[in-house]
Write a protein that binds this DNA or RNA. Structure first.
Length: 220
DNA sequence: GCCCAGGTGGGTA
DNA sequence: TACCCACATGGG
């Protein structure tokens, strides 16, 4: 019963967000490896810092193979500007080496031929790759219906009452993944992030002029 | 000076 | 299972 009620709310949320921010269209403009590294760099990091680190990494190495073979110190040097450099340098190198070991080459396109759950499990066995990072790779580079739930989506979904306030991020992946229809996942993700970054910010518990005001219980 | 940022994994109870 | 913490840098 709850699912029926909240699925209607997801449609309402989507309609209002589309009206406000436009309709995002999915296009596979990055390889899975590229999205994987980019997402690792974005873990618990602002988009300004993670973009800076990713561009610095691209400028420092000619290929992902060269990153895989580089010293951790060299990788750390390249991505230091993004924060968490030591952790992420080790993680990126280990992930790339592990993919090479398992697949003989640095490509992940085979994942699109697996059932979603198997593709997710394969990615989550890589070091430093959790449910959010795996979902980003599957959704953005391969167009598979996996919904990444980051801090913005978690916050907005809780404020809207789509999920309980005490729900963990991991649990939220399961709950929101069931609530949002497969064909809407990409748009839902993009629009919720946009809303969370611009209007429904963590420091602004009551968002003045919020496009979702009519749906948001925290306004009442 | 503090809080937060497109998380994850290890440790502990 | 659920919580707590380290990891690091930069913007608001």
């Amino acid at each position: 019963m709850v699912e029926v009620k909240t699925s209607i709310t997801v449609k309402q949320v989507l309609a209002l967000l589309k009206r406000e921010y436009g309709v995002p269209e999915w296009k596979p403009d990055h390889t899975p490896i590229s999205v994987l590294v980019q997402t690792i760099l974005s873990q618990n990091t602002s988009d300004i810092n993670s973009t800076r680190a990713f561009e610095s990494l691209l400028a420092s190495f000619s290929s992902w193979e060269s990153v895989a073979n580089a010293d951790i110190d060299a990788i750390e040097q390249a991505i230091r500007c993004g924060g968490l450099g030591g952790v992420k340098a080790r993680c990126i190198k280990q992930v790339l080496r592990e993919i090479e070991r398992k697949r003989d080459k640095l490509e992940l396109d085979f994942l699109s031929r697996l059932p979603l759950s198997q593709a997710r499990d394969w990615l989550e066995q890589l070091p430093g790759v959790g449910v959010k990072t795996a979902s980003c790779v599957l959704l953005f580079s391969l167009g598979m219906p996996a919904l990444p739930v980051d801090t913005h989506i978690l916050r907005v979904a809780k404020r809207l009452g789509l999920i309980n306030p005490d729900q963990s991020a991991v649990k939220a992946h399961q709950l929101l993944g069931r609530l949002v229809p497969s064909q809407d996942i990409y748009q839902f993700h993009i629009l919720m992030i946009e809303h969370g970054r611009t209007t429904c910010q963590a420091r602004r518990p009551l968002c003045q002029g919020c496009v979702l005001k009519e749906l948001c219980p925290s306004y009442t």
